[in-house]
Design a protein around this nucleic acid. Structure first.
Lengths: 186, 186
DNA sequence: CGTTTAATGAACCGATCTGTTCACTTTGGC
DNA sequence: GCCAAAGTGAACAGATCGGTTCATTAAACG
């Protein structure tokens, strides 16, 4: 029964923070909705900020695992890059989609020097590294530039799916990605 | 001396909300930093939410005026569309740039049914209409699709400028926009 | 069995939250 | 100079904030 409640708490807090926001979610509500006592929460995390950082670590791992596993199923690198937008489309279609956790975190903690903001930026950096590698494997002349372009489209699609009126931002992004990867070797 | 303090309050509140976030900014701090008494604030706005809605209306007007005025200076429609990314680049370079007010608002009020979220979505809709018109004037075969692509790049660039490590997201976005508009008549 | 560790519930802390009340002062227009 | 509108300051309200304290319970491990 060692660290059982801790993981459960992080998982549930992720769900609730994602749904309602960070500032808008109090520790009392968190305790009430998870059934985990406040005493226990503060035994595992010395502050709300520490809990949020743990939540973001979990989300980073979850999200990148999910995305790249789904991309790998598409086969060769070029197809994998296209598949990123198919995965996004499925995500956008899920009923509890509410944008990107890290964009939300950086919105609520706008100071880049804030640990929560910094850790969110780190997630984006890790994503870039993985996409850049795939772009190189796909034979891009400038893998970094292709990766930057594709990730611009990804972030734009996420924001638009949450805030915009568009029917299929992932599909739109995939089309633009097509013009970007047109000169790639098959 | 009619509605003097009201406008001043909205303007200052815009600055402070943009800098620190909505939930993180209390009405007392707002009163202290603007020098406007809390009594007066609540005489002009019956709630914080009403004030935020007024702030968003002002921001919508300010931002679209600024952006499209700057684009108009670029000359013909095609050049105007490219100029959007130059304008973004200048914005990103300003020392107090902290992402897009409406993305931030939708992050803090994630429920699409919430008035603040809905009004943020309306801003994006207005932007789309204007860009779509320009795309039509530029001779695009599918103006709506071109507008959607360009705005994906715009939103992605904004998020990346705030959260990412990239040196020049506006420049990256402009390059991708170039591949999108390659077949446009000069 | 006994000990340690995890977890609980509820009360409590001071600070801050949105919003109100009220008596007072300033200001502009006639 | 008068009146009405606009603004002020400070206290107040009740709720909630992040975080702590403490006595108690439950369970894993030797």
């Amino acid at each position: 029964m060692r660290p059982s409640k801790r993981g459960e708490l992080v998982q549930e807090a992720l769900r609730i923070f994602y749904r309602d926001g960070f500032h808008a979610t109090g520790m009392d509500l968190l305790s009430a909705e998870t059934g985990i006592s406040k005493t226990t929460m503060f035994k595992h995390f010395r502050s709300k900020e520490d809990l949020i950082l743990a939540v973001l670590r979990l989300r980073d791992e979850q999200f990148r695992n999910w995305l790249f596993r789904r991309m790998e199923q598409a086969g060769p690198p070029r197809a994998q890059l296209f598949a990123m937008f198919d995965a996004l489309g499925e995500w956008f279609g899920s009923p509890d989609f509410r944008s990107c956790m890290f964009i939300k975190a950086s919105s609520e903690y706008p100071d880049p020097a804030h640990p929560i903001h910094a850790q969110s930026a780190e997630h984006k950096r890790l994503l870039f590294t993985q996409v850049e590698k795939l772009a190189a494997q796909a034979g891009a002349k400038d893998p970094a530039q292709l990766a930057r372009g594709l990730l611009l489209l990804k972030e734009g699609a996420i924001v638009t799916a949450h805030l915009g009126h568009e029917a299929d931002p992932a599909g739109d992004a995939k089309m633009v990605a097509g013009t970007l990867m047109a000169d790639l070797p098959a």
